Structures are given as structure tokens and as C-alpha cells.
Computed example of a mutant assay.
Amino acid sequence: MGETGGVLHGDAVETLEGWSAPDEEQGELRAHYLRHLRERPDGMWRSCRPEHVTSSALVVDAYGSRVLLTLHKTVGQWLQLGGHCEAGDTTLAGAALREATEESRLTGLSIDPSPVQLSRHQLLAGGCAGAYHLDVQFLVTATAGTEYVVSEESHDLAWFPMDALPDLDHSVQDLVTRTRHRLTLTPRTLSS
């Protein structure tokens, strides 16, 4: 994965070292991720086993009132957008933004470069079955519109009001809750 892999690896370490975990559990995950990256120079790539770093994005509309979720084909649940890092990625935030754009075809997305939360979870299906994703989850805002296109990775995409979500895995629910909290701390200003 060459030089960009080293740049991405370095950005992951820098991002995690500079991030203030919101609670003790998140702090323990942060320490686990950093230990993984210290021990595994290949720790960013899907070929790394038993775990590897991934990057995802909870996309919110410009008003911060709705979230865009994907009904994932392999997992069969409503999830945030995201996935594996690729050779051209140089930052974790950039990987999350790329994934959000690829999976929704939304334009004009903006990303908060500070993670919202970390989620370590085992994959039970697909090409990574049995491996653990060390997911770094970001907040992405749709600023240019909300008309999406469903990608081949999804059964469906849909906007959900934050107060009327479908049945979600606890980690996705936590991501929405933490995102909502972040949005209340940093009020949004919309230009016309």
C-alpha cells in the first residue's frame, strides 16, 4: 500500500491521539485502536486480521434534524455510511467522506474532522466475516441537497428524523445520540 498507506496510518494515529474521548469506554477503545496501530503497520487495510481500522460517517441534513441511513445488503440492518480504507485515502476523515459520497451520490458534503465515536464490532457475514472493524465514526453534513442515489452496497437509503429512527443496533443509536449532542453544542448557521 506504499507511501499513502504510511500517510493514512500516521493520520489515524494523529487523529486518535488528538481526540478527546467522551467517556471511559470510548477512552479504552481509543487506547485499543492506538495499540493496534502501533503493533500493525498494515492495520488500516481489510487484509489485516483479526482486526483493521475502518471509517464511517453519519450524514445529517443541513438543519441537523435528519440522518441518512443505509439498509446494508450484507448486514441487513440500517447503518451509517462507511467502510474500508482504500489505497488513495490519506486521512481517516477523507475516507469517511469518500465512502459517504460513493454510497449516497450526494454532493456538497462537509465533514467534521474530529470523530464522534469509535465502534469495535465483529463482522458476521461477507468478505470480512470473523474479522473485527475498528470503526472511526465522523459527522458529515449534507449542505447542497438531500437527493441521494442508492448504491449497489445497499438495499435502500432513507432520511430519518432523529426523533423517529428505525430499529437500530446499539452502536448506531449511540452514534446518533452523540451526534445530536455535538450538534446542540455547535449550533448550525445556514446561509440562504
Rank of each mutant, 00 (worst) to 15 (best):
29 L>W: 14
29 L>T: 08
30 R>E: 12
31 A>E: 15
31 A>W: 08
32 H>R: 15
33 Y>K: 02
35 R>S: 12
35 R>E: 12
36 H>G: 01
38 R>T: 09
38 R>C: 04
39 E>I: 01
40 R>F: 03
40 R>M: 02
41 P>W: 00
41 P>V: 01
41 P>K: 02
41 P>N: 05
41 P>Y: 01
42 D>S: 04
42 D>Q: 06
43 G>M: 03
43 G>H: 04
44 M>R: 09
44 M>C: 14
44 M>F: 06
45 W>N: 00
45 W>F: 07
45 W>G: 00
45 W>T: 00
45 W>H: 01
48 C>E: 08
49 R>W: 13
50 P>M: 12
51 E>C: 11
51 E>K: 11
52 H>M: 01
52 H>K: 03
52 H>W: 04
54 T>H: 05
55 S>N: 13
59 V>H: 11
59 V>I: 15
61 D>G: 06
61 D>S: 09
61 D>N: 13
61 D>P: 02
61 D>Q: 07
62 A>C: 02
65 S>R: 15
66 R>H: 14
66 R>E: 13
67 V>G: 05
67 V>F: 08
68 L>W: 12
68 L>M: 09
69 L>P: 04
69 L>A: 08
69 L>E: 08
70 T>M: 14
71 L>F: 15
72 H>W: 10
73 K>H: 11
75 V>N: 11
76 G>Y: 12
77 Q>K: 15
77 Q>M: 12
77 Q>T: 08
78 W>C: 05
78 W>N: 03
79 L>D: 01
80 Q>S: 14
80 Q>I: 01
80 Q>N: 13
81 L>G: 02
